[in-house]
């Protein structure tokens, strides 16, 4: 279970813009530690977003996404008080879901 995500969701002119900041190492598997041993890959592989429990977007990521990933996307519709939920699953099977209320 990773650290909480920061999610902001704001509705404007019928479009809800969602900004997500995740806390994850996003290790590529190509780097080596001080003693020369390869650091195993560890990254968010799958991601899904829901508006009021309805899936709106999914994503697959590779290790090329930056450490502590940022994601921004726009949902058609959505109004103040609606719930946006984002779930990620990393390549080790760890997973985390966080929610935010649309403002």
């Amino acid at each position: 279970m990773g650290n909480p995500m920061k999610i902001r969701a704001a509705s404007k002119d019928g479009v809800t813009e969602v900004k997500v900041l995740m806390s994850h190492e996003m290790e590529t598997g190509l780097r080596k530690d001080a003693s020369g041993n390869a650091i195993p890959a560890w990254f968010i592989a799958e991601l899904s977003a829901k508006l009021n429990d309805k899936p709106v977007m999914t994503a697959q990521w590779g290790p090329s996404i930056s450490k502590n990933p940022f994601l921004s996307f726009k949902i058609k519709g959505g109004k103040a008080g609606d719930k946006v939920a984002v779930t990620w699953t990393d390549n080790k099977g760890d997973s985390r879901t966080d929610e935010a209320v649309v403002t």
Binding site: V15, M26, T28, L30, A49, L51, K54, P55, V56, M57, T58, A59, Q60, W61, G62, P63, S64, I65, S66, K67, P69, F70, L71, S72, F73, K74, I75, K76, G77
Partner: peptide
């Protein structure tokens, strides 16, 4: 080293406009 960075499956309720940060 791994060319593909991300794949976004866009539902009908999402504007095809995504932003992220890559290495």
């Amino acid at each position: 080293p791994s060319t593909l960075a991300a794949v976004f499956d866009i539902g009908p309720d999402v504007v095809p406009d995504v932003t992220t940060r890559i290495k």
